[in-house]
Design a protein around this nucleic acid. Structure first.
Length: 567
RNA sequence: GCGGGUGUAACUCAAUGGUAGAGUGUCAGCUUCCCAAGCUGAAAGUUGUGGGUUCGAUCCCCAUCACCCGCUCCA
């Protein structure tokens, strides 16, 4: 299973130090979140896994970390100043909102009501560079990291002596003054991107056997898709969605989104977009672009740039003139991922609630009795509602609808019938639409919750490479100094290789549960046998199985399991 | 920005027009030979914030902020 709804994730995130609401002591600020001690580890691990995959594991990639503040002209020529604003109008009658450039005429297309004057929402945050707050110092916080890569094209290509095709990767914060942020960290105004610009030859200049932009685009789509799968996303909750021609930005030849099935109302939502942008961006920032190309790309002449961002291809031979070498503006494939979105997806995917041990029938008596009473009451309410409906009268506004009552009643019956395996289902029943207004269910909730506390666990089945803490070390008895000493020594010895914690503030069962909840893949327990033979038990998070491993072998053993190099 | 809902201890929730309780969690001590065990004790909230009505508000009213669910967006 995965997280049933986003609230579970929000609550766990707060409780266990993954993600906090920003500026909470002042009542918060809209849609802004802080990553806590475990959240920063998780997100760093996501970013590191990405960097490793797209930079280190390939031979054709370089990294970059460009400034957030850039010359305003970057945003003028990239098109953001003009087009990254949405002129919005609202219908005064039906309250619907439209983009004024998307509608014909001056009345609401839905109800023909009167519209407000268009208001322009430029999505870029503005600021002023230097002491004078006037137009001369106006700057923007970047709304995407991509432009920093484009304007550095020549720098990277020449200093690294790169030949096409090659790419540049960058991770960094971007800012958009979104009109409607929300869904936890899914859409925020300050967010982190993991972007690649992969430069390649335009079709015209390909040598035989070289891949064209269409093939490379497809390869990136497949590679990026499998990255998520390799790190634990179930392919059934991951999809590629090719954008319709009408959806495409005019400069994009094709775009495929990678979408994840988030819990709750968010549903299928974009993690990453992989676009074939052709030669649009580099041309936009270049001087001396030929008229025909400007026209093709719907660009206006760049009168400010001092460079032409092009590439000298010395291998190319003109088939007509036989002349060697040619200059052209490369095409670009852009895989653009959201670091916060990926992190959120991994969290949602990892979330599990499981039955750890089976309660005895005697443990369930109270739950069964309370549910029987609730079921009876629900039956009555359903009958009442049906009678009302037969009379043609609408249900009382304050009560749950007949359909809600019926589905709650069914769900409750199923949960009871499936006991004890369905212990976890009761909370879901209590959270169903309309359930909050049923007093009978309010009695079920705490009883079920108590049982869940005892017989179930929350476990984050994060990929070990993403887990914030890799290893936890426990003494089986904390009032046995010899055991404690060995455990603390192990923690110290593993520290250089792995993120490791020591904990002795609870019984062994509780210590395991705590680590399960934050996704720690391995727990080491030092017991009396350890004192004799210098081994410890290594407990696996997912299977809860234990094996004995020699203390001296721990670092190698664990690094191998996690898939990290010891050096 | 518009409509609906919510806001009480770290979390999940309860209660009342007379200034708040439970469970979980946390901390300390004892205990414990492997899956949220037990015992003892402790800390913790100007009931989101600011106004108003009232002798008195956490509860009623208004505003504001934040979050959740619907309209927009694309990392």
């Amino acid at each position: 299973m995965v997280a049933p709804d986003m609230e579970k994730i929000v609550s766990l995130s707060k409780r266990r130090g993954f993600i906090f609401q920003s500026s909470e002591v002042y009542g918060g600020i809209g849609s802004t979140w802080d990553y806590g001690p475990l959240g920063v580890e998780l997100k760093n691990n996501v970013k590191r896994a990405w960097w490793r995959s797209v930079v280190y594991d390939r031979e054709d990639m370089e990294g970059l970390d460009a400034a957030i503040l850039m010359n305003r002209l970057v945003w003028r020529y990239s098109g953001h100043e003009a087009t990254f604003s949405d002129p919005l109008v609202d219908c005064k009658q039906c309250k619907k909102r439209f983009r004024s450039d998307h509608i014909q005429g001056k009345t609401c297309p839905e109800c023909t009501g009167e519209l407000t004057e268009p208001r322009s929402f430029n999505l870029m945050f503005q600021t002023y560079v230097g002491p004078v707050q006037d137009d001369s110092g106006l700057a923007y916080l970047r709304p995407e990291t991509a432009q920093g890569i484009f304007v550095n094209f020549m720098n990277v290509q020449q200093t690294m002596r790169r030949k096409l095709p090659f790419g540049v990767a960058q991770i960094g914060k971007s800012f958009r003054n979104e009109i409607t942020p929300g869904n936890f960290t899914f859409r925020t105004r300050e967010f982190e991107q993991m972007e690649i610009e992969y430069y390649c030859k335009p079709p015209k200049y390909l040598q035989s056997g070289e891949k064209d932009d269409v093939q490379l685009h497809q390869e990136w789509i497949d590679q990026r898709f499998s990255w998520y799968v390799r790190l634990g996303i179930d392919p059934s909750r991951l999809q590629k969605r090719q954008q319709e021609t009408a959806e495409l930005a005019h400069y994009a030849k094709a775009t495929t989104d990678i979408e994840y099935l988030f819990p709750g109302s968010l549903g299928w939502s974009e993690l990453e977009g992989i676009a074939n942008r052709q030669d649009y961006d580099l041309s936009a920032h270049s001087k001396d672009i030929a008229e025909a190309d400007l026209e093709r790309l719907k660009l206006s002449k760049n009168t400010d740039s001092v460079q032409k961002l092009d590439y000298f291809d010395e291998q190319y031979t003109d088939p007509e003139t036989n002349k060697k070498g040619v200059r052209y503006v490369p095409y670009v494939i852009e895989p653009s991922a959201g670091a916060d979105r990926a992190t959120l997806a991994f969290l949602c995917e990892a979330y599990n609630e499981e039955l750890v041990s089976e309660p005895k029938e005697s443990d369930l008596t109270q739950l069964r009795e309370t549910c029987a009473a609730a079921a009876k009451n629900l039956e009555k309410k359903v009958a009442e509602a049906e009678k009302q409906r037969a009379k043609g009268a609408d249900l009382k506004a304050e009560g749950p609808s007949l359909e809600q009552l019926k589905s709650i009643s069914d769900a409750l019956a199923n949960a009871v019938a499936g006991l004890p395996q369905t212990l976890l289902a009761f909370e879901d029943v209590c959270n169903m639409q309309g359930a909050e207004r049923l007093d009978v269910l309010k009695k079920v909730r705490p009883i079920a919750a108590k049982l869940c506390d005892e017989f179930t666990r929350v476990v984050l089945k994060l990929h070990p490479q993403l887990a914030p803490i890799k290893v936890a070390v426990f003494p089986l008895k904390k009032n046995e100094p010899r055991i404690v000493e060995v455990a603390k020594k192990i923690r110290q010895d593993l520290q250089p290789f792995l993120r490791v914690v020591y904990d002795d503030t609870a019984g062994i069962g509780k210590l395991y549960r705590r680590q399960d909840e934050i996704g720690t893949p391995f727990c080491l327990t030092v017991d009396f046998q350890s004192l004799d033979d210098s081994t410890v038990t290594v407990r696996d998070r997912d299977t809860m199985q234990q094996e004995r491993v020699a203390i001296a072998e721990l670092a190698t053993h664990l690094c191998k399991k996690i898939g990290l190099s010891i050096f």
